[in-house]
Simulated scan of single mutants.
Amino acid sequence: MNSQKIKNILEHFDYRLLENPEFKEDSVREEIVLPIIKGLGYTPNKPNQIIRSRNLIHPFVAIGSQKKKIYIIPDYLFEVNEKPSWILDAKSPSESIIKSKNVEQAYSYAIHPEVRARFFSLCNGKEFVLYSVDNFEPILHFQMQALPLYWENLKAILSPDNVFSTNSLEYKKDLGLHLKRLGFDRNTILIFPQIPVTNITQLDNDMFTINVGGATLENETYVATFDFHLDVFRQFKGKIPDEAFESLLKRKKEGRIAFRFPDTAYMIDIECEIGEKLEENDKEIFLPLELKRIIN
């Protein structure tokens, strides 16, 4: 199927209907979403199967000392050879599908232990948005009337032949982004026990950071970044070797330096909260957590 064919599928749809209050979520599913997912190559039958409204057993995911409810069951789960690949949640035209609770809800389903889908998407009839669970910003976001322009990109990611391929969409899974997407914010205090400290880097005169690889939550592995100020760094005294502590403390005004412990991990219990600023390097976008205090 090419762009012209998918355009023909929707060309008879009158987009003025989206302004009618009677055109709600069920209409979006039937009139807009269903032609798209069939065009991508999914059917009610195996191996490329559409599964509607699958029930979940566990209603919560546990993050640190907090629990977050799994809000909804999305309209569609797509399986390829009985393996979940992506989900789609249809919304009414009046609902937001960007930076809203609807995104959090769809993400919380995608990362559920019984699903673990790589991609999740939302459509409200006016817009379509596609996310990867490993990246905070959308992969694709377009007005539905522009679908023919985006069709080849959509097919390259979500068609049954491509959805499990390894490509440039591979990102490290960042814990901060994961928590942000679940709806945690700076008003939530998170406690993480037994965080392994294998490195400390001074970012500037008053800011330090530690990076933790291989943090496991809900049987998924994440990379976490914890930023903290000098007053919190002082709490590391006695938690890391005196040589490292004194070296970082004395040299805190000499620019960025790093101290690594290649042979030992020093375990600490910490209290932190969600950071405010997304950071970016040449490979990824990540959201540091703000370490507030050491509690052991």
Results as ranks from 00 to 15, higher is better:
Val80Gly: 06
Trp86Met: 08
Ile70Leu: 01
Ser96Met: 08
Glu79Trp: 02
Val80Asp: 06
Glu82Asp: 15
Ile72Pro: 00
Val80Cys: 12
Glu95Leu: 03
Ile72Met: 11
Phe78Glu: 07
Leu88Thr: 02
Ser85Ile: 05
Leu88Pro: 02
Lys68His: 08
Phe78Gly: 05
Pro74Asp: 00
Tyr71Thr: 08
Gln66Asn: 12
Lys68Gly: 03
Phe78Asn: 03
Tyr76Gln: 01
Glu82Leu: 10
Lys68Ser: 08
Ser94Trp: 08
Tyr76His: 02
Ile70Ser: 00
Ile72Asn: 05
Ser94Glu: 14
Ile70Glu: 00
Ser92Gly: 15
Tyr76Glu: 01
Ile87Arg: 04
Lys67Val: 01
Pro93Cys: 12
Glu95Tyr: 05
Leu88Cys: 08
Pro74Ser: 03
Lys91Ser: 08
Lys68Tyr: 01
Lys91Trp: 09
Asp89Gln: 14
Ile73Ala: 11
Pro93Lys: 12
Gln66Ile: 08
Ile73Asn: 13
Lys91Met: 09
Pro93Asn: 11
Phe78Ala: 07
Lys83Cys: 08
Ser94Thr: 14
Gln66Arg: 14
Ser85His: 06
Lys67Thr: 01
Ile73Leu: 09
Ser65Gln: 11
Gln66Leu: 14
Ser85Val: 09
Tyr76Ser: 02
Lys68Thr: 06
Pro74Gly: 01
Ile87Lys: 02
Gln66Pro: 00
Lys91Phe: 07
Lys69Leu: 13
Tyr71Arg: 09
Pro84Arg: 14
Asn81Met: 13
Tyr76Lys: 03
Lys68Trp: 05
Ser96Arg: 07
Pro84Leu: 13
Lys67Tyr: 03
Trp86Tyr: 13
Ser94His: 09
Pro84Tyr: 14
Ile72Leu: 12
Tyr76Gly: 00
Ser92Met: 13
Phe78Met: 11
Ile70Val: 03
Gln66Asp: 08
Lys83Asp: 10
Gln66Ala: 10
Tyr71Leu: 12
Asn81Leu: 11
Ala90Ile: 00
Pro93Tyr: 08
Ser65Ile: 08
Trp86Asp: 06
Tyr76Val: 02
Asp75Tyr: 04
Asp89Asn: 10
Pro84Ile: 11
Leu88Ser: 02
Lys69Glu: 15
Asn81Phe: 12
Ile72Ala: 03
Ile70Phe: 00
Ile73Tyr: 06
Phe78Gln: 07
Tyr76Trp: 07
Glu82Trp: 10
Pro84Ala: 13
Ile70Asn: 00
Val80Asn: 07
Pro74Lys: 00
Pro93His: 10
Leu88Phe: 03
Glu82Thr: 10
Asn81Pro: 05
Lys69Trp: 06
Pro74Thr: 00
Lys67Asn: 01
Ser96Trp: 02
Glu79Ile: 04
Pro93Ile: 13
Pro84Phe: 12
Tyr76Pro: 01
Ser96Lys: 09
Ser94Pro: 04
Ile87Val: 14
Glu82Asn: 15
Lys83Ala: 11
Asp89Ala: 07
Trp86Cys: 05
Ser92Glu: 15
Ala90Thr: 00
Asp89Lys: 02
Lys67Asp: 02
Glu82Phe: 09
Ile72Glu: 07
Glu82Lys: 14
Lys83Ser: 11
Glu79Met: 07
Trp86Leu: 05
Phe78Tyr: 08
Ile70Gly: 00
Glu79Asn: 07
Lys69Ile: 04
Lys83Tyr: 10
